[in-house]
Amino acid sequence: MTLDLTKEWLPRLLEGMKYTVAITIGAFILALLLGLVIAVMRLDRRRWYLYVPATIYVEVLRGTPLILQLFFAYFALPAMGIQLSPLTAAILGLGANTSAYLSEIFRGAIRTVDQGQWEASAALAMDWPTMMRSVILPQAMRIALPPTGNYAVSLFKDSALASTVSVAELLFTGQVIGSETFRYMEIYALIGLLYLAVSYPTSLLLRRLETHLELSRPRSRKKPSVPAPVEAEKEPVS
């Protein structure tokens, strides 16, 4: 067992892990970009020509199974003349799915930015893109970072679904080894450990980052009622 494990299984599994990581990173980058665009499109209901299509996008992706979306990308798109490699289909499916969830996080974070920030930027004659880029998004990003990190970890685990569209990632590789050796117990336990070896440290890292951000966040985020806060007397906090 030890011999098999180190000599034969592990190199193959690590090869699979490469695909797992590639899918995660590719899908996550796609999700970040799409998520941001969708979030911005959904900010203002009055701009219905942006709001409506973006909302349909989010609801369809959140309301249907992820595995169906993957099958659609890999098996159904060829019928429309779009032939994707397994890896591309997996990145596209997982990325689109995650973008729907991330867009909601981003939209919430943008809305959390104090009304006074929008007004101050407007009063300084900023146009909308400048306001977004220089004032709103830098603040929203901080708010969105912890939940976004959690989605990155989820995405890493969900990438196992790419095995269903025959990407030779970690789980797929394990299944192949299993079917060759019939030692499913050991192989699946090993795969589980490999997933955990990546996701657990990442989660810990994120939690630390979250605490760090919480501390350095300006205190005056909450809107006080009219007689304003007595923050002036307190010693400056760095």
Partner: peptide, 25 residues
């Protein structure tokens, strides 16, 4: 415009708060 609640940009230093609008706008 000067607001009751200051509305400084919390992610920027005092200097950056004053510098950024002229540069960007």
């Amino acid at each position: 415009m000067v607001f009751q609640r200051f509305n400084l940009f919390p992610h920027l230093t005092a200097l950056e708060n004053v510098m950024m609008p002229p540069v960007r706008v």
